[in-house]
Amino acid sequence: MSASFTSKWSIVGRSLLGSLSNNLVGTVKTTHEVIPRSHYNSIFSQQQRTFIQMRTNLKVVDNSGAKRVMCIQALKGRRGARLGDTIIASVKEAQPRGKVKKGEVVYGVVVRAAMQRGRCDGSEIKFDDNAVVLVNKQGEPIGTRVFGPVPHELRKKKHLKILTLAEHIA
């Protein structure tokens, strides 16, 4: 709300706000509470869902031992990876005594992406989060289980093993 205020008023307004900022801290909190919940949600939903690119954090949805990886390279595509693409990632969080350790560089297949992807019939599909299944260089999964839904497009990408391990196929 304060952001829109500054954008409406020019530099003068900004300096005014700056001078009043100490007093405003208390009031800003109350105004945030005044904003209706629906409006609040729309602010967050306006965030652009984009490609999986360098520094994108992804959830690992297999039992390889890694919990969170960060993309360091998309293997295909100029603008980044999408649903079904393979990425190179570095393990940021890992469970103790897993197959992969923190700091390792691994390959992974994006099995869920929040950005929508066109399907072969022209409709689109999108998921709740960005999730990855770790694979080795030959494309075989490191873990032995896959959690949550995966898209059937993986069949086209020749990741049949992931599809057979998956709980749900969307």
Partner: peptide
């Protein structure tokens, strides 16, 4: 009715489409 090739589908993490 959604005819083939139309619309978008959202898959929640509990696999509800």
């Amino acid at each position: 009715t959604i005819y083939p090739g139309h619309g978008i589908q959202f898959v929640r993490n509990d696999a509800k489409i």
